[in-house]
Design a protein around this nucleic acid. Structure first.
Lengths: 218, 218
DNA sequence: CGATTTATTGAAATAAATCAAACATTGTGG
DNA sequence: CCACAATGTTTGATTTATTTCAATAAATCG
């Protein structure tokens, strides 16, 4: 279903076998293929396409989304370098995936079917965890809480640095957080005025008070 | 992670092996144990407890939730008879599970670890699907859209009947949809005034215009 | 450099939260 | 069985936050 954020290893003693003792990497059963390139905005897969691969982001960034009947776009996840996405629960994709900028993606071939569930299981667990985090963000009412949580998450995924680069537009962020672009923009300004972040430019954030930011987003 | 709605079988040809050819049931590797009973409000497991089982609801209803720093409660899922829950991504529960009313739950013992991922994989996929549905609901801004989607989902899980029984309180619904009890209550009234539902009493809903309700929640 | 897209800011409208009270339901004890 | 308390639900008035509509500013692209 929702493709999500997978990059670290898991505990080797999970009762559900997530950390299978002989499990070398989250994607053992998929033999790497050539890296494919996508320009900004180019499609990786579309809703309705059969699920044939999962993918690793080599560089760049990806958005995974669905389009609703009223034309709204719900971005269920962003993926940056090192992360695996494309994991869905059905035969055909329910989501679209697009490159946000110039992006390299490596399709991972699915091996023999009897091995897939074993090897892909930890990936599924990671997807569950990432989705749960997003669900938690959306359950927060206030725009400032959603944005703060989003920024903290992005910082963590970029090596816990205080300098964050946002590969996505305000529109993308709005569609991810269930807000409008105006509210996202105003909330960035508010975080700046509160002294929690700096905004060298709209795509680069410097976190000044990480703890305070964390507290707002919980 | 999020325990969720599992009751039907899946397609037997999923590329990720969800429909493993020789896969007899979602929980083959768990030998059923005795049914345990819980009064309304009684705990099934708590955050921090080690994950030892997953559970099937025999009768009654269960809420799975987490408590946030500010005291808010986020209910990530409800489970009714026939559904399996308790599936989480970590060694210890991140969530609490409680009986909503008098409820029977059957702990399913986890079998040998090498079989678990194979047998539990479809359960994980179902959890992903259910969570995705909830995420979609929360991404909707309007209270009426969230409640409509919730009611349609509950109706589907009760055999697609137009008579829905809600085992949970307004407070539970509010904590699930990210709204307040007052807004939930007002929105029920609004749906009634729009002629989409009847409210014989607060726990029993009759859907009058299913299609219209569907359209609102998408 | 001009044109187009993207981001920010402002003012007004709107929806939900909050504060508060009434009402209904359930259960308890007299 | 009734009175009463406790809990849960609905409704009302007000406040607050976000959306919407509109305009300006900044960045990007050819």
């Amino acid at each position: 279903m929702l493709a999500s954020t997978i990059s670290q290893a898991r505990s080797p003693t999970h009762p559900f076998g997530a950390g299978h003792p002989t499990f070398p990497s989250p994607c053992d059963s998929q033999r790497p293929q050539l890296v494919a390139f996508r320009q900004a905005g180019e499609e990786i897969y579309a809703a309705g396409d059969p699920v044939k691969h999962i993918y690793r982001v080599e560089y760049g960034a990806v958005r995974v989304f669905r389009l609703l009947a009223d034309g709204r776009r719900q971005i269920s996840a962003f993926h940056v370098a090192g992360e695996i996405f494309g994991f869905e629960a059905r035969l055909d994709h329910e989501f679209f995936a697009e490159a946000i900028n110039a992006t390299g993606i490596r399709p991972l071939r699915l091996a023999a079917i009897e091995d897939v569930s074993r090897d892909l299981f930890p990936v599924a667990l990671q997807s569950l965890t990432a989705m749960q985090k997003h669900l938690l963000i959306l359950s927060r009412h206030a725009a400032i809480e959603r944005l703060a949580a989003f920024l903290v998450d992005m910082a963590e995924r970029q090596g816990d640095l205080d300098q964050i680069h946002l590969p996505m537009s305000r529109m993308d962020i709005a569609d991810h957080l269930g807000l409008t672009i105006e509210t996202v923009s105003r909330t960035f300004t508010r975080l700046k005025e509160l002294g929690l972040i700096q905004l060298p430019d709209s795509r680069n954030i410097e976190i000044l008070r990480r703890n305070a930011l964390n507290d707002i987003g919980e």
